[in-house]
Amino acid sequence: MKKRKIELAVISDVHLGTYGCHADELITYLNSIQPKKLILNGDIIDIWQFSKRYFPPSHLKVLRKIIGMASKGVEVYYITGNHDEMLRKFSNTSMGNFKVMDKLVLNLDGKKAWIFHGDVFDVSIQNAKWLAKLGGYGYDLLILINSFLNWSLTKMGREKYSLSKKIKNSVKGAVKYINDFEKTAADLAIENEYDYVVCGHIHQPKKEVYENKYGSCTYLNSGDWVENLTALEYSFKRWKIYHYNHDRLSPFFMDEDLKEMDMNDLIASITDKEVNMYDVTEEHLSQTEEENIENDFLDDKGLSQD
């Protein structure tokens, strides 16, 4: 498989060690990309629900793949979340290209990106952790039931159905929580003069520009690898939400705008230099004409290399 070269990839909420994790699909995705940086934005390993009875080879293969990427020069940042909060005792630890931290600020082509998992906004986790853990077990059970349901629907030739999405979209409290989460993250980012705020946690992939009276920023969420199978990718000064179920089946563009993007803009985005395509074309044609004249001269003299 030919790997796509990208600047940055962000994945979160993989929940290795649970029945809902799509480890095989994640391995396929990681094998398809060649990023300079890989950000694991929390809840990669589900330590809350970890059990020695269930950690299949495919889940272990994900960890090996990530470590292998780090050993080959990819900068890997493991940002801790609530389900893997035990790793927070190792925050600011570095092992070669592998770094563990609670948050990260990156400079992306002159713009600041603020990256963290997002559980800091979750009151239920801060004040009643046992309730959040209980909810986690209930969510895992729902995903397990949903897996059986989708297996049955597939056998009958029908489309898959997401019970968790249906519940989230139909419960007003859940919808309000997600909206409040996104607005809070964006407002704080604007207040602290960040251009991008990148989260996970709520399993809702999104890319949206938020504005208030103090300014604007782009809110991004990497989604998850339980329901949505999504990631964030940054390249050519643009962010893209990668959807495994769609993008793996069709020719992939880093951004839809690239299809119609002017060649001058594309080259400038890569080199940070303005390039006149007319001059490039003229130069190329001049070189070609000179080569043709030289070849004709060699042919006339019987000195052609052929």
Rank of each mutant, 00 (worst) to 15 (best):
F253G: 06
D84K: 00
P35A: 12
K176W: 04
A189L: 04
K206D: 08
N276M: 07
L131P: 01
G81M: 07
I67T: 14
S147N: 15
D257Q: 05
K176T: 11
E191P: 04
C217Y: 11
K129D: 10
I293K: 15
Y137N: 07
Y54S: 07
A185D: 00
W151D: 08
K155M: 08
Y196P: 01
T28R: 13
M261G: 00
M261F: 01
K111P: 01
F98H: 00
T218H: 01
S235H: 13
C21H: 12
M69Y: 06
Y19I: 10
N41K: 13
Y19E: 14
W114P: 05
V171T: 02
E193R: 14
A174T: 08
H201M: 02
V198R: 05
V105Y: 11
M261W: 02
I202T: 14
Y78V: 03
A70R: 04
Y177N: 03
D119M: 08
R64N: 08
I178S: 10
V280I: 12
T18L: 06
D102H: 09
E233D: 02
W239P: 05
D262F: 03
E233H: 07
I293E: 15
L16R: 08
L63S: 06
N146R: 00
E7K: 15
E25A: 14
G68M: 02
N228S: 08
V14M: 05
F252C: 02
W239S: 03
D46R: 13
E233Y: 10
E294G: 07
V120I: 15
G223V: 08
S250I: 13
M69R: 12
D109H: 12
S12F: 04
E227T: 04
I44R: 03
E159R: 13
F148V: 15
V209H: 07
P56A: 00
Y139I: 03
D296P: 00
D43E: 10
A70E: 06
K259A: 06
T288V: 12
N192C: 05
L266N: 00
E182F: 02
M261S: 03
G20V: 04
H59S: 01
W48N: 05
L40T: 09
K155Q: 09
S286Y: 09
R53F: 06
L16K: 01
L149G: 03
V175F: 06
T80A: 09
K155W: 02
Q49E: 11
E25Y: 07
A132C: 07
N82I: 11
T80P: 05
I125G: 05
I79H: 00
L144F: 12
E159H: 03
K168Q: 06
E208D: 01
I27P: 04
S94G: 02
I44C: 02
S170P: 03
I27C: 11
S170T: 12
A186N: 08
L60A: 11
W130G: 07
A186Y: 01
E256N: 14
I267Q: 02
S286I: 08
V62I: 13
E193G: 01
W151T: 12
M263L: 13
S32E: 12
G200C: 03
I39E: 10
L188S: 05
W130V: 15
N92H: 10
Y177V: 00
E85M: 07
M261V: 07
K207D: 03
A9R: 11
Y244L: 09
V123C: 00
K259G: 01
S51K: 13
S304Q: 12
C199G: 02
